[in-house]
Design a protein around this nucleic acid. Structure first.
Lengths: 151, 151
DNA sequence: AATAATAATGATAATTATTATTGTTTTGAA
DNA sequence: TTCAAAACAATAATAATTATCATTATTATT
């Protein structure tokens, strides 16, 4: 099965999806997520949206981020020690979380490396594994360069 | 390098560790984490501790969970859609999060399966990867049995 | 095009998880 | 036994997120 962070759609949400109405705000959020590689928090998305929609409400941002996540047009990431982040790249991929600068970076891993993990997990488990997300921790290249002595 | 969820100890915390004083509350929390397989939340730990220490404060539980995590005697897990969980099993292992019942289960994976992942991640990355944690999502065996029709 | 139905919005209140503060008690070394 | 440091309980404060509600925007229907 596919590897990734997309959670299964619920029955309730399926109904909601069928009656989805267009909104300029949601469209703009989707577009922003699609182009950025920053993995922004809800608040960060909010600040960006304010440039286009000065009156946009933070609740609207949260509502749409959840909606986009539920219908599989965005992915929610939950790092330790900070707020949730959102990623418009919905292809299965993993992430690196820099413990110094708190940035999240995409990691497109080799399929031959990820398959055995999924296989091993399924083999040693009696339930059904639908997806997975691996968070790698350490120091990003930028942080290593900036202060290599602090390793 | 080792695989797991233990974040690197900070300088500040290292000092704290060197002057650590005994406390019955912390000892009990540690013992509870060591024996349970439930991956309890801070609040859940708090309720258990109340049986032994009726006056224990939730703040004390949080403080000690963070301390135990920092000195590597516990591991903090950050699932999506719910509060942080704590695991007294500090050996590197991954987790399964049931999207239906929200339980977290331990997954001891085959090393030959996890190594290529770590290697692939390191190879395609210019920083330093110190550890990782994979969250698998799906339905646990119990949920599949209880309602197989709802797959 | 006017109208009706309803989904989405902005404003804001409420909730949840977590951290910080403060005064008191416990611990362990001198 | 004394004393400073650490841990405590109680509680206030903060941050992130969700819920409520009256108004506005979107879509389907006449």
């Amino acid at each position: 099965m596919s590897k990734g962070t997309v959670l299964p759609m619920t029955q309730e949400r399926r109904i909601l999806v069928s009656t989805l109405k267009y909104s300029r705000q949601r469209e703009s959020i989707k577009q922003y997520l699609a182009m950025t590689k920053e993995h922004p928090t809800a608040d960060c998305v909010y600040l960006h949206m304010k440039e286009e929609f000065p009156n946009i409400s933070l609740g609207t941002v949260y509502r749409n981020l959840k909606l986009l996540t539920d219908i599989g047009e965005a992915v929610k990431l939950t790092p330790p020690d900070s707020a949730d982040r959102f990623d418009g790249n919905t292809r299965p991929h993993d992430h690196f979380y820099c413990t110094r600068c708190k940035r999240i970076l995409d990691l497109e891993l080799d399929m031959t490396a990820t398959m055995p993990l999924h296989q091993a997990a399924s083999a040693s488990f009696d339930g059904i594994i639908e997806s997975s997300n691996t968070f790698f921790f350490g120091l990003c290249g930028k942080c290593v360069k900036e202060a290599p002595e602090k390793l």
